[in-house]
Every structure is written in structure tokens, then in C-alpha cells.
């Protein structure tokens, strides 16, 4: 498997991971919900822009994240 096939979904906002909605091995389609990040008292839905298989979930619920921190790795 080439590294080019692996796409990292990064946090779009600084905040706290409220809920993780996926796990390694899950088959996902573009637009599927991966996780929810709370920022500025708002729940932000992080969707996958790719079809593929989730290979890694780098965060857990309750964890603080900054913009660009890796959240999920998807093999496309």
C-alpha cells in the first residue's frame, strides 16, 4: 500500500473532540460523519471528503485538538 493512498483528515478548528463516530476498519463514503469537534460552544461535524477505509483514528473523545492536528487516516 503506497503512502499516497493514505489521506489524513485534520482538525479544521481548535477545540475538543466531543464524539468519535468511526473506528479502524470502517468503510466510509464521501460525506460520512467521522467525528464531532466542539469549538466555541458549537458542535462541528467533521465529514470525510474521500471514499475509503478508516485505517487510524488518532484522537479520542474529550481530547483537546488544534487546527491541523491529525484526526483520522483513510486509505482511499
Amino acid at each position: 500500500m503506497s503512502e499516497n493512498n493514505r489521506k489524513t483528515i485534520a482538525s479544521p478548528v481548535p477545540g475538543k473532540v466531543a464524539e468519535v463516530k468511526t473506528k479502524p476498519g470502517d468503510q466510509v463514503k464521501r460525506g460520512d460523519l467521522l467525528l464531532i469537534v466542539e469549538a466555541m460552544k458549537m458542535y462541528n461535524r467533521v465529514l470525510t471528503p474521500y471514499d475509503g477505509v478508516v485505517r487510524e483514528v488518532a484522537v479520542s473523545a474529550g481530547q483537546k485538538v488544534n487546527t491541523s492536528d491529525p484526526l483520522v487516516v483513510i486509505e482511499v
Binding site: 479544521p12 478548528v13 481548535p14 460525506g31 469549538a39 466555541m40 460552544k41 458549537m42 461535524r45 487546527t67
Partner: peptide, 26 residues
């Protein structure tokens, strides 16, 4: 603050679900 920024974000995400405007609107 931060209600107006949240409205910018919410309206933006309706047209582009990958667009997170909240921090830019702050």
C-alpha cells in the same frame, strides 16, 4: 461573540459542508 461567528459558520456549511468558517469569523 460568539453567536454571530456561529451564524456565519452555520450558513457557510449549508452550501459547503467542508467549509469551517467559525475561526475566520471570530
Amino acid at each position: 461573540v460568539p453567536m454571530a461567528a456561529r451564524v456565519s459558520h452555520t450558513v457557510g456549511i449549508e452550501d459547503n459542508p467542508y467549509n469551517f468558517l467559525i475561526m475566520y469569523a471570530m
